[in-house]
Write a protein that binds this DNA or RNA. Sequence first.
DNA 1: CCGAGCTTGTGAAATTCTTCACAAGTCCTC
DNA 2: GAGGACTTGTGAAGAATTTCACAAGCTCGG
Lengths: 216, 216
Amino acid sequence: MHADKPIAESTVRRLSLYLRVLEHAMERGIRTISSEELADEGGTTSAQVRKDLSFFGSFGTRGRGYHVAELVSELQRILGLGREWRVYIIGAGKIGAALASYHGFVQRGFTVLGIYDNDPRLVGTIVDGVTVRDFATLADDARRESPEIVVLAVPGEVAQAVAERVVAAGIHAILNFAPVPLHVPAHITVRSVNMALELEGLAYAIVHRDSVTPAA
Amino acid sequence: MHADKPIAESTVRRLSLYLRVLEHAMERGIRTISSEELADEGGTTSAQVRKDLSFFGSFGTRGRGYHVAELVSELQRILGLGREWRVYIIGAGKIGAALASYHGFVQRGFTVLGIYDNDPRLVGTIVDGVTVRDFATLADDARRESPEIVVLAVPGEVAQAVAERVVAAGIHAILNFAPVPLHVPAHITVRSVNMALELEGLAYAIVHRDSVTPAA
DNA sequence: CCGAGCTTGTGAAATTCTTCACAAGTCCTC
DNA sequence: GAGGACTTGTGAAGAATTTCACAAGCTCGG
Ligand SMILES: NC(=O)c1ccc[n+]([C@@H]2O[C@H](COP(=O)([O-])OP(=O)(O)OC[C@H]3O[C@@H](n4cnc5c(N)ncnc54)[C@H](O)[C@@H]3O)[C@@H](O)[C@H]2O)c1
Ligand SMILES: NC(=O)c1ccc[n+]([C@@H]2O[C@H](COP(=O)([O-])OP(=O)(O)OC[C@H]3O[C@@H](n4cnc5c(N)ncnc54)[C@H](O)[C@@H]3O)[C@@H](O)[C@H]2O)c1
């Protein structure tokens, strides 16, 4: 639909953020927003906002700004959110269960088709309306349902092995919650959410903050 | 202890990752590791590893590599993990509860002193050994216990307001799980974990993958 | 219909981050 | 104790990302 140059991951991240800000603005009845306002809410700069958007087209009106509802649907289209995404969650533990029942995902078109676990005590139970399936049936189910995305919420020790089973089942995108780097073939897309790493980043910032900032 | 230049957030992130890889290597009885091996495991390049470490000193031996145990303790020191960090979790819902009982945090020195909620039905209950406290007592408790870090696991609609109470209570570091950008004074450090945003990044990658890669 | 006031879209400059490439140091074998 | 095989640490080059700055375009009031 438009020429695809390679877009930086940081840009895509910000687009998601803009979308959230815009939806919030829409709820409050705001019709029009400038790059400046969008930047303030999203924690970036107006030039950054305009540059990010310019990779995909030209959506604003000079002298006026962006029409909120229009930009929302443009961003949804760009991010691929106009459709339903079929998701499997693997690991029906604490994180897996929390994610399964998280309404924020459904709202954006991510439908959880199944939760998988290999613990016989969990298989067959129901988590927020979704039955826990036996991990052994993953490949068969995937052939039938062709999910696009897997959320990996298993212990770190087995994450790599499970990821390989996921890839073998023909699924090309993984959201990884285990605190280990996953090694997968190049055509598989992986994003990791590593909470321990973020906490450590805070610790680093606290330790080094006072030594950097000149004392007030 | 050493001259602090401003270090990129991406570098700090990778240091945490190296630490994890090194600990894993140590468990397997590996004594020595090269920047090449460390890079392969951590999903980066050897030059990147050496450059990252070079900001903090010179920890390896030419011709030999890095002594694993030694580099582990250097990284722990750099990241500020040699000590106990006192953490409050706010929001005793699904995510808050999962985090409270997550062993990976305790292991790295992050001690959860208290979980806060404003739902009277939850206050007083016990989540994995930690009692849920009344959010109204936050400021008083903080004065007494001086926690360094708050984990914010409340609904997005109240996240900004709760963050302001946290800042007012004198806490300077926030790990935010709500899917909204937080606006805080400059001396407060915030890291956000935004899972919806990562999922959207996957959706974007899937939609744009095939149009970028020349058909095989 | 004009001019003042805004705000976008975008090349170019500046900055930041990553990769290269190699001198220098270590180890091991013979 | 000399030479070959490795591997670090680091300036310099290169790539990527962000910021600047301004021409061009729209709006609105009179
Ligand atoms: N709980 C947290 O707050 C938290 C925070 C950060 C990261 N994580 C990470 O998320 C992952 C899950 O954490 P959790 O707290 O939900 O753990 P958990 O132990 O509660 O759940 C893990 C689930 O995975 C299942 N499982 C194990 N091996 C499996 C396999 N081979 N195939 C299918 N299922 C399998 C287990 O039966 C269990 O139900 C871990 O990697 C953890 O490090 C958790
Ligand atoms: N559950 C998930 O998988 C998931 C995934 C991504 C993001 N999140 C985000 O994490 C946050 C929490 O999600 P959750 O699923 O745990 O929600 P939840 O509704 O289960 O828990 C939220 C808790 O916060 C408490 N709370 C509300 N207002 C409060 C206030 N002013 N002070 C103190 N406590 C208050 C509520 O009583 C409730 O117990 C949300 O912002 C959500 O968007 C959750």
